[in-house]
Amino acid sequence: MDTSNYFYDELKSLHQWHYEKCEGFRNIIDGLGWSPLIDSQPENIFIHTGLFKTNKLISTNKDEREMILFLSSGTSSSSRSHVYADRYTRIDQQRALKKIVLDDLDLNLLSRPNYYVIDRPYPESNSGALDARYAAIRGFSSLGRGIRFVLDENGDLNEEVLEELRCETKQVLAFGFTYTVYLDFLKKLLDLGIKLNGKNMVLLHGGGWKKLASYGIPNKEFNKIASSVIPNVVCRNYYGMIEQTGSISIECNKGYLHTNQYNSLIIRDNNFNKKNFGDEGIVQSISLLPKSYPGQSLLTEDIGICYGEDDCICGKPGKYFHILGRLKKTIVRGCSDVY
């Protein structure tokens, strides 16, 4: 095993929990003949993230109304993941997020930094479901004080809030989705010739890298523009998914994403065998947080490289990795419907 025994013991218990509580998960494990692996090789048990798009996977008897439904980004209901988080799972997620951010970023959470969101104000859903975007904004809000949206409803810079940000003397936590931060914030500031003081600012961004990649902007380029517009800013990317809210991996100062005590990552080949450090492959993401739904070990459609464990030059422990992109959704030739 390549991660601590404690981590895998926790994973075993989590698998066992979901095996007992979630019929769908149990059917999959039994159907694949994987139940003996729960004890012997818990890291080799995983389900496809896409299952949350078409199925209601719940591992608790609680009333659905007591849970919050998280919806991943997507255009139609069928293309969005439906994740049911109960109160306990949400508390664990919130605690983990706080701990990860505290450990990874130089933030003083005691005096709580002022919280700025580089996005437009987001309306709350009437259905009670929480969109991934809004869930993330809300999730990080507990780390800071207040919530100020840097963009207005039209996606333009909100001059009033921008002025506040310019004049900040306290520590600032700024959060946004990578492409929004780049297109609607950094690029606009660059065009307008506005510079911000980043001395007390941590800029955390994630998600939306697919869209950014379509503009041909690599992470390094992003960081370069960020530090030219906001000199001295601590700019960090993170990797996470709605199915594993809370257990995010944050980029270190050497540009690698790191796992932590709540999560892990395994790179697999096309036959789902584990790959060696340094090899490119399909990302399996593990989180110790999901309790009300079986999202603890997921096969994603992301491609990544894991370079090693506990020996990153930044000195931070954990596995360190890069996400290279997503498997292309090629249409497999075959015989199917006309419409």
Binding site: L51, F272, G281, E301, L327, K328, V332
Partner: peptide
Amino acid sequence: TEMGVMSTNNFL
């Protein structure tokens, strides 16, 4: 690696 999409689709 790009062929992995076939495997992940199959798996789903």
